[in-house]
């Protein structure tokens, strides 16, 4: 195994183990904390794939914002007694079976992929020469300007929606 492969193997194993840990914790707070570690690893993987900008976003948005939101909600709802009851559903075996079949299927699809599209112009050297953020920014604000604006609208709607949904009913 070469060094990059070893590096990948570490991340792959860690990500898998951390996901398993995350979904099996009884206490959601623990789950969130494992998830934090997991996201840091995913960010590491992004860096490994020359996507520094996304790595930063991953940490800032996911770890910084979304997970904190989860923690807030968990604390907001008083879930003491939830921790004592069974954590899995009755037919959890069916779920696990489905998941495993899913994994098997997905892996077998990967083997079948034969057609590869043409390589684009963003070679590693080209991106490095300009800087990852610069490259992403240029594409995002030119070709994908409209989707970008739509994303901002979606976020705005989400803000309003969250406020409307979660506020106290005024009778």
């Amino acid at each position: 195994m070469t060094a990059p492969q070893l590096f990948f193997a570490y991340f792959a194993v860690m990500i898998t183990v951390l996901s398993l840990l995350m979904i099996t914790r009884r206490n959601p707070v623990h789950g969130v904390l494992w998830m934090l570690v997991l996201f840091v690893h995913i960010a590491g993987l992004y860096i490994f794939l020359n996507a520094e900008f996304l790595a930063a976003i991953q940490i800032i948005v996911y770890a910084g914002a979304i997970l904190v939101l989860f923690l807030f909600v968990i604390m907001l709802l008083n879930l003491k007694k939830e921790e004592t009851v069974k954590k899995f559903q009755k037919h959890w075996l069916v779920g696990v079976g489905t998941g495993i079949i899913f994994a098997v299927f997905s892996v077998s699809i990967v083997r079948k992929i034969e057609v590869f599209p043409q390589l684009g112009k963003y070679t590693i050297e080209a991106v490095k020469a300009e800087g990852n953020i610069m490259t992403v920014g240029k594409v995002l604000y030119t070709k994908y300007l409209l989707p970008f604006e739509i994303a901002s609208v979606i976020l705005l709607v989400a803000i309003i929606g969250a406020v409307v949904l979660a506020k106290k009913r005024i009778e």
Binding site: Q89, T98, F102, F105, I109
Partner: peptide, 23 residues
């Protein structure tokens, strides 16, 4: 919720299964 999720997963699996085994 989880029943709906399960049905959805089974649906997705069938589509993938058809794609894998019949091609």
């Amino acid at each position: 919720l989880s029943d709906y999720g399960l049905i959805m997963a089974i649906g997705a699996l069938s589509i993938i299964g058809v794609w894998i085994f019949l091609r």
